[in-house]
Structures are given as C-alpha cells and as structure tokens.
Amino acid sequence: MDHTNHIRLSTIELTPAVLEGAIIYGADDEKVGKVDHIHGGNVGGMAVIDVGGFLGIGAKPVAVPLNELEFMRDEDGDVHALTSWTKDELKAMPEHHD
C-alpha cells in the first residue's frame, strides 16, 4: 500500500475513539497487528496492539508508545498506522496485561 498521500493524524486526533481497531503495517508493509486499546493520553500514551492470531483468536497483546506509530487516514477515511517493527519483533515483546 502506498502511504505517501495518506493524511497524517494530528496529536489531538490520537484518541481511543479514533485509534482503536486501526490496522498496523510493519517495516515491510505487512499487516502486523491491530490496535486493541489505548492507555494514557495522546502524548506519552501507549497503544496495545494485538499481534498474530486469526480473527482475534490467539493474538498476543503488546504495548508500544504511541509516538512509535505513525497514524494516518487513507483515501476512504480509514485510520491505520505504520511502524518500523516487523511482526516477529512485535511478537518477541513482552505480553501486555491490563
């Protein structure tokens, strides 16, 4: 997917209502996970990403800083994010427990 023309979200848009459910694309533009929920505010907050699994079953939740994800909207208005991590790197992170 070409993300160059996608509109980057502003800091005030980084809210749970906007970000939850967003697909995360990794370094090789592979789908690596989906935002399950957000901890904290839009500055210094954490995104809990479900990595792996199938249809939400068997996914591993990992927490990453919001500022490590580049959130944007595509041509249809759908929110997604880019990260420099691969799926394997995210899977290797400690499991997040609420």
Rank of each mutant, 00 (worst) to 15 (best):
D28T: 12
G44M: 08
P16C: 09
V79T: 15
G53H: 07
N42F: 09
V43N: 11
T11G: 09
I49A: 09
W85G: 00
E68Q: 12
K60D: 13
N5R: 07
G45C: 12
T15G: 07
L19M: 07
N42W: 03
H96E: 15
A27E: 14
V35H: 04
H39N: 15
W85T: 01
F71D: 04
D2H: 02
D88P: 03
N5C: 02
I24Q: 03
K91D: 13
D98T: 10
M1V: 03
D36H: 13
M46N: 12
H97C: 06
L14R: 09
E95Q: 14
V18R: 14
L55D: 15
H80T: 07
H37L: 12
T15A: 08
G21D: 12
V35D: 10
D98M: 06
K60Y: 06
R8W: 01
E13Y: 02
D98S: 14
F54P: 04
K60C: 11
H6Y: 02
D29S: 13
A81E: 03
I24S: 04
I24G: 05
H96C: 10
I12L: 10
P94F: 06
I24C: 08
A47F: 04
G26R: 03
T4P: 00
V62T: 09
A81F: 00
D78S: 10
E30G: 07
A47G: 14
D29H: 07
G41T: 14
L9A: 06
T15V: 15
A92S: 15
D50L: 13
K91Q: 14
G44N: 10
E20H: 06
N5D: 09
A47S: 14
P16T: 10
H97V: 15
A81D: 03
T4F: 01
I57P: 08
W85H: 13
D88L: 08
A63K: 08
P65W: 00
R8C: 03
I49R: 06
I38R: 06
G40A: 12
R73V: 13
T15N: 06
L19W: 04
L19K: 01
H3P: 00
I57C: 11
M93R: 13
W85R: 04
R73W: 01
A17V: 13
E70W: 02
L82R: 08
K60R: 13
V43W: 03
P65H: 04
H37V: 08
E13V: 00
L90A: 09
I23Q: 07
K34S: 15
K87S: 10
K34Q: 15
H39A: 11
D28W: 00
T86A: 05
D28C: 05
G40Y: 07
P61Y: 04
T86P: 14
K31V: 14
R73C: 11
E13C: 03
G40Q: 11
D74C: 02
M1R: 02
T86F: 01
K91F: 05
E20M: 10
D2K: 01
D74F: 00
D29L: 07
D76Y: 10
I38N: 08
L55T: 11
N42R: 09
L69P: 00
K34L: 11
E70I: 05
G41Y: 07
D36V: 14
L9W: 00
H80M: 15
A47V: 11
D29I: 01
F71T: 06
